[in-house]
Amino acid sequence: MRLQIDERRCKGCNLCTLVCPYRIFKPGKRANRRGIVVPELDRPERCANCRLRHLYGRTLCGNCQMICPDQAISWKEDEEPVPKKVAIEY
């Protein structure tokens, strides 16, 4: 799972930066085309929901999504990893 912020919905209120237990959300630095400073993600792979959702079969934590007043935070399914053949040399 991958954490993502929908830039079309985010209004830059930074509430997500308050509630994330891993402090993944950091206040952004630059305004986007709509003039909104969207928070940045700091190593989002640390998100518990990203790592363990499939294991538990339900949304874990999810505080950021619940508090986001603009319905801008969601998780996206990763693309299926393509198995690669690796030649092992002895």
Partner: peptide, 20 residues
């Protein structure tokens, strides 16, 4: 969406909770 609420307005949060 996006809705008309101001940036940081709590209404959107309560909508999330209600829909959940």
């Amino acid at each position: 969406l996006p809705h008309i609420f101001c940036a940081g307005c709590g209404n959107g949060t309560v909508i999330n909770c209600t829909l959940s």
